[in-house]
């Protein structure tokens, strides 16, 4: 019984957790929304290739907001980065992915 419940919860969780959850960001509102949408499209487009997704995000961000963007996508990682103020977005997506986007020239 407990197991089934757990499974159910798991399913619910997976079904529900498709939205992006911004864990930390110091971007201006407009930029944050745009970056968030970009991350969602990239992760959905390359759902089984994080490298390509990161590349896409980085290139698009470089075009839109100037060069020297860095993107990390993964299911588990730790990091300590130096970023330019107002240019950081750290979000979770799809329940398993963590995406960190920042700018540092």
């Amino acid at each position: 019984m407990g197991e089934t419940e757990g499974k159910k919860e798991e399913a619910d969780y997976k079904r529900l957790q498709t939205f992006p959850l911004v864990k930390h960001s110091d971007m201006p509102e407009e930029m944050r929304m745009e970056t968030m949408e970009l991350c969602v499209t990239a992760c959905e487009k390359f759902s089984n290739n994080n490298e390509s997704a990161a590349k896409m995000i980085k290139e698009t961000m470089d075009k839109k907001f100037g060069s020297c963007w860095h993107v990390v996508i993964g299911e588990g990682f730790g990091f300590e980065i130096t970023h330019e103020v107002k240019n950081l977005l750290y979000l979770f997506f799809g329940g398993t992915l963590a995406v960190c986007v920042w700018k540092c020239s």
Partner: peptide, 18 residues
Amino acid sequence: PRTNFSATANQWEIYDAY
């Protein structure tokens, strides 16, 4: 201006956040 930011991303943290 720059600042530092550090975090650890792993499955349970993501789960908890959600």
